[in-house]
Every structure is written in structure tokens, then in C-alpha cells.
Amino acid sequence: MGSGGYLGELEQMVLLAVRRLGDGAYGLGVVDVLEERVGRSLSRGAIYVTLDRLEEKGLITSRRGPAVPGRGGRPRRLLTVTPAGIEALAEARRAWQSLWEGLAWEES
């Protein structure tokens, strides 16, 4: 996943989910969005590891969020997609689109 220049499937999903959530984006929100939009159950562990890796690659950044009760005193980490992340998403989308173009497909 995601080693060459291209993003892996889960990486794309996670980046898009962070984008969708906007200002208040944080880990549990991403889990929720993916569960809701993608439908199938994704492993929580995989999502968090992906988030960690995306941050390492500089595709998202995180900052300390407000202290929210019920987290055992641990603040949320708010997530933002970096310009590099947006660029990577756009590139992935171009690649997919060009591959899909002209293919006939009927969803059964």
C-alpha cells in the first residue's frame, strides 16, 4: 500500500474522510465517516495506523485539540490535509479517472 508514488486505497479513503470532516476532523470522526460512507466495516487499527503513516509522509498534519470530557484527560488531535496531501489525492483521482474512461460498466 502506498509505497510508490501512488496512494493506497485506504490512504485515499482516510484522506478524503479528513477532508470531508473539515475543521473538527479527528480520528474517531474518520472512523465514523468511513463506516457510514463506505459501509463495510474497516478495522479501527488499520485506520489509525494509516493516519499515523499519512502524517509521517507529510500528507496530513495534526495539532492538539480542545480537552473533551470522557477521554481520560487526553485531548483530541485535530487533523488537516496538507497541500501535499491534496496534491496526492488529485493525482490519484486523475489516474483512476483516466483508467476508467471509456470503459462500459453496469452495476448489477
Binding site: L28, V31, L51, S62, V68, R71, R74, R76
Partner: peptide, 10 residues
């Protein structure tokens, strides 16, 4: 913070 806190929240 992110993972353990989120898990507590969940």
C-alpha cells in the same frame, strides 16, 4: 492522545 483518547470516547 489521539488513539487512546478516541478509544475512550468510542
Amino acid at each position: 492522545d489521539s488513539v487512546v483518547g478516541d478509544m475512550a470516547e468510542a
